[in-house]
Design a protein around this nucleic acid. Structure first.
Lengths: 217, 217
DNA sequence: TAAAATTTTTAGGTTAGTCTAAAAATTATT
DNA sequence: AATAATTTTTAGACTAACCTAAAAATTTTA
């Protein structure tokens, strides 16, 4: 069994490993968890004793297979709870993160399996992120940033890179919703802004926005 | 805000106060929480600084109005989650306690209000215990122990005094379910056992069982 | 490649929540 | 009411998870 805090470290390392492949530095972990590198060193030693990470002084950490599975299970719980909150309890997608952050630590295999079934085995959370299966595997669909689309190309909006409530509320305001088709009418050379059409409405969106929206071609 | 541990103390004192009315001794709290009296003394001092209990050395503790409301809210969460687990996730009534014990600490007013609505504002948990309202008030219906019924009297089964999974599984096995009518056909002088009829089935039950079942006349 | 800058670890300290053992207060017994 | 038994508190210690400041290792830069 893992403590609340150990689980948070595992989850963080898991996320950091997804886009780096190399050993994760204590500094990177500290930044993600808003803690100090010295605290990370302490915890990482403990995690390495528990065989969930491999740690060599000054060389960063990597998850073991066991660690990866454990971490994926926490992410699984987090994302299933997010689906529950949105689908069943009428939360909006910008409100679910903090609550799921707490719910992900509830320990009960039956609970999470029943929840999964109750939600009809969802594959993605409200932000379009994939939900790991019971074995910790996640099938990643190939998605692209909206900013990579060229003029007259289009795709289905399938996810966000930034899940901050500010960004999500901005998308709500603009009527940008997951599952909808987005077509690029114009691409401005000058600032890489896009003129898009979604649900028959034309919108001009900045490159910053387009860099945080995933579409499936 | 209260820590996990502080919440457990509050809940325990709340439950103990329900059937004692006097100040709750550190020993009684220690026994309930499976901890040591010295630990309780420490915690009780902290809780008294936070104004949720009144504590006089050697005199036990009592909850303040604020403490009572805080504790009732934890009990409210615990019982709503139990309803959720049974009604929505197909848990049986003997499996819910440990999970609810964790879920009751999740902090999100919106979550609990939405859950309440999602469950159609239940008034009782799966064991027949009343669910405190948002202000911490609970309306106690007058219920009696089955053991107090006389020959030829009857009532509706509305709750259990012992919520241990052993007892609950025993009731399942015997077909004793909340909401069903129980009639006393015979009362044995010798050992106070009862011959009852429930759902057209005759059952002989011991006084110990009858002392742990509540009925509404 | 040597000095400078940065990162990481170590050493030592803090707080929350627990414990044991001993001291103090209360309650029960004779 | 004095003594015995019990309960409660105090004192001192432990662990987990954090912190700061300094030392050590690594990486960058000139």
């Amino acid at each position: 069994m893992f403590t609340h805090s150990e689980e948070n470290y595992l989850k963080t390392i898991y996320h950091l490993e997804l886009d780096s492949k190399k050993g994760i530095s204590t500094n990177a972990i500290a930044k993600s968890l808003a803690t100090k590198a010295s605290s990370v060193t302490d915890m990482v030693k403990k995690l390495s004793e528990k065989e969930v990470v491999v740690y060599k002084k000054y060389k960063g950490v990597t998850l073991t297979a066991f660690g990866k599975k454990t971490a994926a299970n926490i992410v699984r719980k987090h994302r299933l709870w997010e689906v529950f909150l949105v689908e069943k309890l009428n939360f909006s997608w910008d409100e679910v993160h903090e609550v799921a952050e707490q719910l992900e630590h509830i320990k009960s295999p039956k609970l999470i399996n029943q929840l999964d079934a109750f939600l009809s085995f969802p594959t993605h959370d409200p932000h379009g992120d994939p939900i790991p299966d019971k074995d910790g595997n996640l099938k990643t669909i190939e998605k692209s940033l909206l900013s990579t689309l060229q003029k007259n190309e289009s795709g289905i909006c399938v996810g966000v890179d930034d899940s901050s409530s500010e960004f999500l509320q901005f998308l709500d305001k603009k009527g940008i919703v997951l599952g909808k088709k987005i077509a690029v009418l114009e691409k401005e050379e000058f600032d890489d802004s896009l003129l898009i059409v979604i649900e028959d409405k034309k919108l001009s969106i900045s490159n910053k926005i387009a860099n945080n929206l995933y579409i499936k071609k």
